[in-house]
Nucleic acid binder design. Structure first.
Lengths: 352, 352
DNA sequence: TGATTGTTTGGTATCGTTACCAACTGCCTG
DNA sequence: CAGGCAGTTGGTAACGATACCAAACAATCA
């Protein structure tokens, strides 16, 4: 490296990155020879090879991958990822899993935040395809507006849905076993003798929430235990709403003796509601609480808590693996949906 | 769109994405006219324009951005981001802030996980430059091994360091006010009358940790309060280590009456240690605890807690803004270091 | 020595796109 | 009716890299 920053002459050069041609001139060879050296140096005289390597180093030459990917047979090495909310630790973990597998396959990920907006998602996907990504991993923003995710619309670019299904599209999908996890948790509560179990969840247009409610209902049905509809409270996206909802239920004439909360936001609200209710009442009326999703510091909950734990990182890994399988040839295999197992932890443990 | 997936003939075509040439043939015009239509359609007869638009839609044509970025004057629209640990919610938030600002400037981010390994970081940066990213945002893995981040080595690609400084490199940097935050927290404890304040932190090769320790020392120095060196415990990267370290201090002959913990991992360990110590002792010996970093559910801590809160999302935003300023022309302004303010929250609040 | 083989090197064309220029159209003006 | 002009269209070249072929050369054998 030379001492100055940028090109050779700070003033005269317009700081254009060097090309094979520049390296070739400096090494007094043809561009082809430079290309050959950079490709491994087979069938190049050692003397020339050293000269070229030296010139490349001096100029700070880097192959232009965009130009390279233009040539027939070459791929971009990019995988496009759209996430509904990057800042959510759950999806952050998932992205970590995707990146891990992609990196092993020498691919980079290009990430966009759809912010739960299908229009934004459409733009992002269009941009990614324009960059000739080899494949897409998408957390679908809205199953009802997903025409742009149809394989026809993608022109053959492989795609995998992560975390949320899109009914009607025949596409590889990786999900958490929402139904099974909710079923297991509810069953546990029923087996412990509870007959009035509150359900706290998000709005049911989020399919994940819908599936967890279904597991709750299935568990009741299979044991011939009636569901108290007034104990089912959906629509709480944030902790504050969940706290309010449970607080109302606790003073109902038929109050719950146990609570199943369908995600960690609702669990947090439930914990607060129970903690406040306990300090208001003189006796220690501890409600039984099971929540879907692990969260940091779950083991420090001031209220006894069990959780349905799962591994978003593994979800990301699996999605990336399925995508790479498609990319590396298997385009005919029928679309597949994988449901990752969950684990009912009676005592929450540390990070997974 | 046609009914079949991929090209026109599922069997005969090798599923190559359509090009301007394909669209031109179908619309019975020259490639140039197609290009013009796609560029906005100025000076094209409406009839032809419609024919081209129709043909493009039918074929599912998308401009190849890689080919486009090859032409002089055009940029890649990519920003490279390397993070030491994507799964850490702190950096996930930061990435969210970067993406937000980048998206507004119609840029995509391409993300790699360095996993605290400077070699991996070097590879990622090389790859990004090969893809002709317009700029880089890097959380430096190891300040001592950062030659590859020198502006000479980058060949003029603008770079911004986020969250951690690299002494010796004259580069735009966005930091948290570590020293000030630690100073403020420690000062508060001293003003409350505490004279034996434990310090829990990471290994000091992480400069962030080093800066927080400095703030702790400065607060003592400015008030002429001696520091008990045995109360300073660094080297705990995870909660388990922090719990053990504090447990040892609590049975020391000169035990702490308050604890300052320099990051959320250590805070978690401290909470656990204090909770266990409290239940072991019969009396309620509540240690005063202040921790650096906000974390989810901090308000649910079973042990009284104050925190030094800051906003990683804003950090990401600022880094992206500084980078974009460089990209969009301002290459001569001298390198700048910004320290974002922190807030001492005596009662932890919800997410920022 | 001439023919044959193998190695090293460079010229040319191409990937997909678009800037630039040239050519052509139809229309208006002098 | 020639000349000019605005509007429209297509040909050519270039961005950076490299696969393919051909040329030049050295080494080997009959």
């Amino acid at each position: 490296m030379k001492g100055s920053s940028g090109g050779d002459d700070p003033a005269s050069q317009p700081a254009r990155p060097p090309t094979v041609k520049d390296v070739a001139e400096r090494a007094q060879v043809s561009p082809m020879t430079v290309s050959r050296v950079l490709a491994g140096g087979a069938n190049v005289r050692p003397q020339l090879r050293r000269r070229v390597e030296h010139a490349a180093l001096e100029l700070g030459y880097r192959r232009n991958e965009n130009a390279r990917s233009l040539r027939p047979g070459h791929k971009s090495g990019l995988i496009g990822v759209t996430i509904t909310n990057i800042a959510n630790p759950y999806y952050a973990e998932m992205q970590g899993g995707i990146e891990e597998v992609a990196a092993q396959a020498n691919r980079r990920i290009i990430v966009g935040n759809s912010n739960e907006d299908p229009d934004r998602e459409r733009q992002l996907v269009a941009d990614f395809i324009g960059r000739r990504v080899e494949g897409l991993i998408v957390v679908p923003a809205d199953p009802a507006h997903s025409d742009h995710l149809d394989s026809d619309a993608l022109g053959g670019t492989p795609i995998v849905f992560a975390s949320r299904p899109v009914p009607g599209l025949d596409v590889d999908t990786v999900l958490i076993d929402d139904i099974g996890g909710a079923y297991e948790a509810t069953s546990r509560l029923l087996e412990e003798g509870h007959r009035q179990i509150a359900f706290l969840g998000t709005r049911t247009s989020v399919l994940t929430g819908q599936r967890r409610l279904q597991g709750y209902r299935n568990a009741h049905r299979d044991r011939n235990v009636p569901v108290y509809e007034h104990l089912i409270r959906t629509g709480q996206q944030e902790a504050a709403g969940a706290e309010k909802a449970l607080a109302e239920l606790l003073v109902h004439e038929v109050p719950p003796t146990a609570v199943f909360s369908a995600n960690n936001r609702n669990t947090l609200g439930a914990i607060r509601a129970i903690a406040k209710f306990r300090s208001a009442q003189s006796q220690a009326t501890d409600l039984r609480l099971i929540g879907f999703d692990w969260f940091e510091f779950a083991d420090l909950s001031p209220v006894p808590l069990s959780i349905v734990a799962h591994d978003p990182r593994e979800l990301g890994r699996r999605a990336a693996q399925m995508l790479l399988a498609r990319i590396e040839g298997d385009l005919v295999r029928p679309a597949e949906t994988v449901e990752l197992p969950v684990e009912l932890q009676l005592e929450p443990r540390g990070p997974q």
